[in-house]
Amino acid sequence: MNLTLHVWRQKGPNDPGRFETYPATGISEHMSFLEMLDTVNEKLEAEGKEPIVFEHDCREGICGCCGFMIDGKAHGGQHKTTVCQLHMRSFKDGDELTLEPWRAQAFPVIKDLMVDRSAFDRIIQSGGYVSVRSGSPQDANAILIGKEVADRAFDAAACIGCGACVASCPNAAAMLFTGAKITHLGVLPQGAPERFRRVQAMTTQMDMEGFGYCTNHGECSAYCPKGISLDVIARMNQDLLLAQVVTRDEVRREGGE
């Protein structure tokens, strides 16, 4: 099949950027979306033109590298699917598609469809961990964790950090991402001791990065390729509120900075 692509091209953060149109011809329905772009790029390359830049690595929907908007839908909008896992059989001959990068102040465009998501790393860095060092902790089975709790932690931990939540949120908020880590670690006994400190530190960093706020539209969760539930945001809010009540001043200050 043949398609027409309107692709956002931007040389760098300071270039205003523009849409350009490319034909994608001879596309097989078995191709993945990125393989379709590969064929467009290979043609551009052979002509000595600069190929369309997009981020990708595993192409299995797990590393979280890939992601851009297709017709205004993060990752193309297929249920629980990253763009590298999206296949051309869900499009039809003659389709015209608009490809845009994630747009958010906190995710500056690096080039074309590639954005800088290091804000996410800084949020984790601010407290998204359990403070243990490599060594000899207690035996793994010494901590009993009920299956429901373990499953709940896992569901939140399934986040791949792709940024689709921010991209699809009308407010460009990063609450699903941040809430997922806070829930993952907060519900487990291992993460409980640092629970309140963590939530304060991480939400402060989240604000500092310039993300928006949550109005409970639910788009983030709907477009999340891992289907992270909105409940993680409620859990984060709850923890932050509780933190105001139960923590001592000292800890609060530490957490906030």
Partner: peptide, 20 residues
Amino acid sequence: IIDQAVAQGVPFAREYGGLL
């Protein structure tokens, strides 16, 4: 390794009784 990972909060699969 398993002890270390569990201490870090890696959510390994568990049985209903809470064991790995």
